[in-house]
Amino acid sequence: MTPRIAIAGAGLGGLTAAAALHHRGLDVQVHERGEELREQGVGMHLGPNGTRLLQRLGLGPELERSAVRPEALEIRAFHNGALVARQEMGEAWQQRFRAPYYTVHRGDLHRMLASRVPAERVHTGRELVRYEETGHGVVLHFADGTDAHADVLIGADGMHSAVRRTVAGEDTPVYSGNSALRGLADAAGLPALDPALMYMYAGPGARVLLYPVAGGRQFTFVVVTPAAEGAAESWTSAGDRTDLAAVLTGWDPAVRALADAAGEVRRWALYDREPLERWSTARTTLLGDAAHPMLPHHGQGANQAVEDAVALAVCLKEAVPGPDGIAAALHRYERARRPHTTRVQLGSRTGQQPGDAARRRLDAENVDWVLDHDAEAALTGTRDRLPRAV
């Protein structure tokens, strides 16, 4: 009998898991606390390790239309814009890692993933407040007073995960000492920047990363600065363009233009958590930020959620029927993923100092093992026989 699988959370990780499970013919239901499907945030990096898995779910043509394949990353001097170093990307990374490196608006990717999950399998307005495992499965209790029953529960409910607290207990967020101002700016308002390139500027007390999204019509910007500990573990706190102007005083005019070109500005306090010692019970497991919230310095948060989702779908598809088979599948998933994501999570804590981070980011050799990873092939041992990412 096919197990009934419930997913708490319809963010990028939850929808990727739903799409991957549905793609493999499994019975999946998604429960999202919001009243509608909506992904907050701006742009994101989609490394080859994430892209190749999404291409196998059929998203390749849509990504090619909506995302941007940056030709290069340029590091420039903060005060006059002089070129310091350049990392070729584009076709060079396509050949090197066998799949494209994209920059994409989170909302665009979220819509693509939602289109891969039948609408009747996604339930909004369902905030999970608690759940209980029984001898017959899992009972989910929602804030609206309704319940749902499943054989497996996947906690994809983000950094404040209710599922995580039950599986692993309470823990304390770890503050990095930095916060980030981030948002979108129309490319037309930044005429000195080429929308085919990514840019990094490292200056006194700040690091600025800009990269194109929405087919090159917009730039996402992330301005990382030291800050007193944030009041909330959130990426949606209000910011202001005057904050940008203050940070960028004396910088290259190409970057200072952000203060006028930016739309809504949000402040993101940069927290992560210590790696967990376990993710799973006999019927329940975690993925994405619920399992391993990480700092953004490797651009891998969403990519690791995509990897988790596909790996978990493989394990559940190949599970032996019955409760023991489910428990073994979740153990197999955790055994495959937890060491890898722990390494990425801890590695993402590097790059706190702007100058060092810029040079590390430029040298792809430091993250080859991340970008080259194939989470599906790692489980199946079929790297050479899987559909080639194109």
Rank of each mutant, 00 (worst) to 15 (best):
A375C: 10
A188Q: 13
R388P: 04
E132D: 13
T166C: 02
P275L: 11
L244E: 03
T242F: 05
H105K: 06
R111S: 07
H136C: 02
A150N: 00
T284V: 15
L210M: 13
E120S: 06
D356E: 15
H110Y: 09
I326M: 08
A192T: 11
P212D: 07
L83H: 02
R337Y: 07
E376S: 04
E318I: 00
R69Q: 14
A305F: 09
R343E: 15
A319S: 14
L362S: 03
L26M: 14
D27L: 03
L276P: 01
R96T: 13
S179W: 03
H123R: 15
A6L: 05
A187L: 04
D27K: 07
N49M: 12
A259D: 08
V138L: 07
W279A: 04
L26Y: 05
G288A: 15
H23V: 03
H79Y: 04
R52W: 04
H123K: 13
G230I: 00
G216N: 08
L184F: 08
E32W: 08
N178P: 00
R343K: 14
A85W: 04
L295Y: 13
A313D: 06
V255W: 05
I154Y: 05
A309I: 13
V265F: 03
P61E: 13
A305G: 14
D147P: 00
G13S: 15
P118N: 09
P61C: 07
D289K: 12
T220L: 01
P204H: 13
E36I: 03
V367W: 08
A99R: 03
H79I: 00
D308Q: 13
P3I: 12
F142Q: 09
G216K: 09
E127R: 15
G47R: 00
A206C: 11
R349E: 01
M1D: 09
V344G: 11
P212W: 09
G230C: 09
T134M: 03
L276N: 01
I5L: 10
L362D: 01
M198D: 05
S179K: 06
A327G: 12
L184H: 03
V174A: 12
L295T: 13
R207F: 02
A375F: 11
A168L: 04
V314L: 07
P212M: 09
E229C: 05
T225H: 06
R283F: 06
A8W: 11
A311S: 14
P118V: 07
G355I: 11
R338S: 11
Q345L: 15
A72W: 08
S234A: 00
V247T: 12
L46Q: 12
A269N: 14
L386N: 10
M200F: 01
L109Q: 06
L197M: 10
T242L: 10
G250Y: 12
A196F: 01
F142A: 01
L181D: 01
V139W: 02
A72D: 07
R266V: 00
T284P: 11
G347I: 04
R360Y: 07
L128S: 05
I7G: 02
D252M: 07
D144S: 10
V247R: 04
G183D: 01
G351C: 12
H23R: 14
Y102F: 13
R343F: 01
Y101H: 12
E71D: 14
R361C: 04
P118W: 10
G288Q: 06
G60N: 06
H31K: 01
T134K: 05
R52A: 02
E71N: 10
T146W: 02
V223N: 02
D272R: 12
D368N: 11
E127Q: 15
L276K: 00
A119E: 15
